[in-house]
Nucleic acid binder design. Structure first.
Length: 428
DNA sequence: TCTGGGGTCCTAGGACCC
DNA sequence: TCTGGGGTCCTAGGACCC
């Protein structure tokens, strides 16, 4: 087995870059994309970062700063981002099948089997091609482990002299030391909010320090991940490329409500809607669930914070929307408290099994024939919605109320996925 | 007034088994 | 009198990722 050479292709400020594609006048201006309910900044242009707007900044706290500096805000438009992401993955897949689509804006490639003389030049060419064909700026990092490729991409993004790429593979040990010296420990893949201060207390301030940490100590402080991290920083790959996406272990859908509510029918409509979305996802992934749970909470920023959970176990695994809706609504009715100001609700499906193995439950309550009917019903609904648009056919329970729906005042059109929302071109 | 959403993996501890 | 130890499964909680 050949030693891997990883490239990480990482989109710069991805959501903002997607919005700018159709609003070119926003180049060089501070732009942010906000989370659900237009709550927090989840993507920021370089100009917005330079204004000191941190990741996750609550919009209401920064309103003054936004206004004073002409910051342009968008509600997140995941349909648009997903479509552009798919186009980028198409380009990358044509380069090599040894690709791992790690997230909506990051992919790893293993280049070790490709005939490339100059990896840095290769990365620069790819970067230019993506910019030309899709219009999204990317950073590319190259390294002998995924962790080093990540750090390379980070350097490519931040160092103005890098041309957007950084090769940490074809360099000397001393050069790598120097590069790792400039990476604060918090920016290493796998070091989060909690571990960073612990490491700093140990005198481990940057990636070069962590690369020197004794294996046993790394394990004590961070568990097996820590041991791996040290090896990866030294160029030994421990985290392999995951080509085919593994089947999901759970599926969850939830939302913070547009406004808090104590109305049972509003919460029921939300839960029904989440159950329907989860069930659809479940069928898409060709799985069945054996257990569904609901989770509700009040506003966690208030002193009266409360939370509730409840779950339903199914006699036989299912992916039927109707069955899931009645299960979650039934679970809610048992814990409903009319004095509570519900702020957020979610539905999670657990214990997923492939839909090819349908097992009769022990009590024989669900026969294969019944199961077959439900499958046919769901398939028919999915087919109609695919042909005529999402939610053309849906359960009445989803429509009992709409008061829970989040606010998205600043959403851009679905330029690339909806005929009604194509960009318009004005004749001169 | 206004603070996101959807996941994964690891670990520790208890129950239970032989 | 002596009072084991290893394995497995499950769950809850905590850490991380984008």
């Amino acid at each position: 087995m050949k030693k891997p050479i990883f490239a990480l292709i990482d989109c710069n400020n991805f959501f903002v870059s997607c919005e700018r594609l159709f609003r070119p006048e926003l180049a060089n201006r501070p732009v942010v994309v906000l989370s659900s309910n237009d709550g927090c900044a989840v993507s920021r242009s370089n100009e917005a970062k330079a204004l000191g707007i941190p990741m996750g900044a609550p919009a209401f706290k920064y309103r003054q700063l936004f206004e004073a500096n002409g910051v342009v805000s968008f509600s997140a438009n995941f349909e648009l981002y997903g479509d552009l992401s798919k186009r980028l993955v198409q380009i990358l897949t044509a380069i090599t099948p040894r690709i791992e689509v790690y997230s909506v804006d990051e992919s790893f490639l293993d280049l070790s089997l490709l005939a490339i003389d100059d990896h840095e030049q290769w990365a620069k060419d790819l970067r230019a091609r993506v910019l030309r064909d899709i219009g999204i700026p990317v950073s590319i990092g190259i390294g002998g482990s995924k962790t080093l490729a990540k750090i390379g991409a980070d350097i490519g993004k931040k160092d103005p002299n890098s041309g957007g790429v950084c090769d940490l593979y074809h360099i000397s040990l001393a050069e790598r030391q120097t590069a790792l010296n400039g990476i604060p420990v918090r920016n290493i893949w796998g070091v989060g909010r909690r571990l960073a201060p612990q490491l700093q207390a140990e005198g481990v301030a940057n990636a070069a320090d962590l690369a020197q940490l004794r294996s046993a100590r790394a394990r004590q402080l961070m568990g097996v991940h820590g041991e791996q991290m040290v090896l990866e920083l030294n160029g030994t790959s421990c985290i392999p490329l995951e080509r085919q996406h593994k089947p999901q272990k759970m599926i969850s859908r939830g939302r913070t409500f547009g406004e808090d509510t104590n109305q049972a029918h509003v919460v029921e409509a939300a839960l029904a809607s989440f159950a329907a979305q989860s069930a659809f996802r479940l069928r898409q992934s060709q799985q069945l669930t054996r257990r569904a749970s609901i989770f509700l909470n009040t506003d966690r920023h208030k002193a009266s914070y409360r939370q509730w959970g409840s779950e339903v176990v199914f006699g036989a695994p299912t992916a039927d929307t109707g069955q899931l809706i009645s299960a979650v609504v039934g679970a809610f009715s048992k814990i409903y408290d009319k004095s509570a100001a519900y702020h957020r609700a979610s539905v999670t499906l657990h214990d997923l099994v492939p839909d090819s193995v349908f097992q009769v439950d022990l009590l024989g309550q669900a026969s294969p024939a019944q199961h077959g009917l439900k499958v046919a019903r769901s398939r028919a609904v999915d087919a109609l919605n695919k042909r005529f648009g999402k939610r053309t056919v849906r359960y009445a329970a989803e429509d009992l109320a709409s008061a829970w729906e989040p606010r998205r005042k600043l959403k851009s059109p679905r330029y690339t996925t909806s005929w009604d929302e194509l960009p318009k071109i004005k004749p001169l």
